[in-house]
């Protein structure tokens, strides 16, 4: 018995998303509640805008952050400037504890491939380190930043061509699994626990 209270189109989408992601129907419904909250925080139009994404992440809608921009861009698969519900669920599915690790590794590779050239280049690594330092209380001299970037490139760039390709990235992550720690959100395994009020109202049984 599927008694989702929204319209038939949304109900169909929920079933479809559950069939092609790591989430159950109940969990996709819980994500719909989260999506509704996020997508109506500034502009109530059924899409998550960049400002709404920033507000949810930083409690500040005008907070600029290179990495949040990259995550937003990857979630916005259609590249139309907003995150739709399907994009939200499919992207979050990669963060599910039971999602394939290869998908998590590939997502981070795309995230760090700032120019989308198919490689993480030395200059991109430096740009990201500087962005991280800029947003945090960490302080490093220019020499120290160069040293960290150069050492990392030496470790990760097995072919020594000055850029990290996807195969090199996979090997590097295998040696340093903590690099994809952010890619697993324990909440997602118990998403219905995170929204108990919703579960009480749900008539769906998986």
């Amino acid at each position: 018995c599927f008694c989702f209270k929204k319209n038939a189109k949304t109900a169909k989408l929920v079933l479809f998303l559950a069939s092609e992601t790591a989430f159950t129907v109940n969990e996709v419904e819980a994500l719909y509640e989260l999506f509704k909250k996020l997508s109506s925080s500034i502009i109530n139009d059924g899409f998550i805008h960049k400002e709404e994404f920033q507000l949810a992440l930083f409690q500040n809608s005008s907070m600029q952050n290179l990495f949040a921009d990259r995550v937003f861009d990857l979630f916005d698969v259609k590249r139309n400037g907003v995150i739709e519900f399907g994009e939200f669920v499919r992207s979050l599915s990669i963060f599910h504890p039971e999602a394939p690790i290869e998908d998590k590794i590939a997502f981070v590779f795309r995230l760090y491939d700032l120019q989308q050239t198919g490689y993480i280049e030395c200059e991109e690594v430096k740009k990201m380190v500087l962005a991280l330092l800029n947003e945090s209380d960490l302080s490093l001299s220019d020499e120290a930043v160069e040293s960290i970037v150069n050492k990392t490139m030496m470790d990760a760039d097995a072919k020594g061509d000055g850029k990290i390709d996807e195969a090199e990235w996979k090997e590097f992550v295998a040696k340093h699994p903590s690099l994809i720690k952010n890619m697993t959100l324990p909440y997602l395994k118990d998403i219905t626990m995170a929204f108990p009020s919703f579960v009480l109202n749900s008539e769906v049984q998986d």
């Binding site: 690594v125 991280l132 050492k151 959100l185």
Partner: peptide, 26 residues
């Protein structure tokens, strides 16, 4: 001060912008 022996990607992964758990905070 960050140790200079740190892996650049370890540093990068500490960005608040990559911490999506904030999306679930009520």
């Amino acid at each position: 001060v960050a140790p200079v022996t740190m892996n650049a990607f370890e540093l990068i992964s500490k960005s608040q912008g990559l911490n999506l758990s904030s999306l679930f905070e009520k």
